[in-house]
């Protein structure tokens, strides 16, 4: 059973965990930069970086949403101290492999990295995030946002938490 006092998506979206212009050359550089930031901030232990890279290699996480291509890299809870959800909008789309078909390449513009200590939370959080991204207008607004603060506001106002079951 879900704990009603548990962290919800809204609590997880933090302005200091949004990168609005990540300027990197490759998928792995993006993943490494993002995972390292979670390590730096104390959310994860150092091996989390390798775990994320490894997971993406074996289980691609890019998805073609109605508006943009996104990626949802995640690893298991092993190296997570505190749960975090890190967003990065990249300055130029990066080539990821598609979750549905690893032979298919997708040019990803928005990356959401999950580091979750509470494993059972991931279903709720991912479902909430997916629902946000399925709205083409919302994703479009995120892509056009001027800064972290604006992305933060868009995410906050467009999240509809699932009723706890």
């Amino acid at each position: 059973m879900a704990n009603p006092n548990a962290l919800q998506f809204k609590d997880m979206v933090r302005e200091d965990l949004i990168l609005c212009d990540l300027n990197v050359a490759s998928r792995d550089e993006a993943l490494e930069t993002m995972a390292s930031l979670l390590v730096e901030k104390g959310y994860c232990e150092k091996p989390y970086v390798a775990a994320i890279l490894d997971r993406e290699k074996n289980h691609p996480s890019a998805l073609p949403m109605p508006g943009q291509k996104i990626a949802i890299p995640h690893a298991d809870a092993t190296y997570v101290n505190n749960s975090a959800l890190l967003f990065a909008r990249v300055t130029k789309p990066l080539e990821f492999r598609s979750m549905g078909d690893p032979d298919e390449k997708l040019q990803v513009s928005m990356i959401s990295m999950f580091a979750l200590k509470e494993k059972w939370m991931i279903g709720d959080l991912l479902e909430t995030l997916i629902n946000v991204y399925q709205d083409e207008d919302v994703l479009d607004a995120i892509m056009k946002a001027a800064d972290e603060k604006e992305i933060f506001e868009i995410l906050k106002t467009n999240v509809h938490e699932k009723q706890k079951r």
Binding site: H59, I72, H74, M99, K119, I122, G123, L126
Partner: peptide, 8 residues
């Protein structure tokens, strides 16, 4: 991995 996406 049966962690996240299959739940959704």
């Amino acid at each position: 991995t049966a962690i996240a996406t299959s739940t959704v």
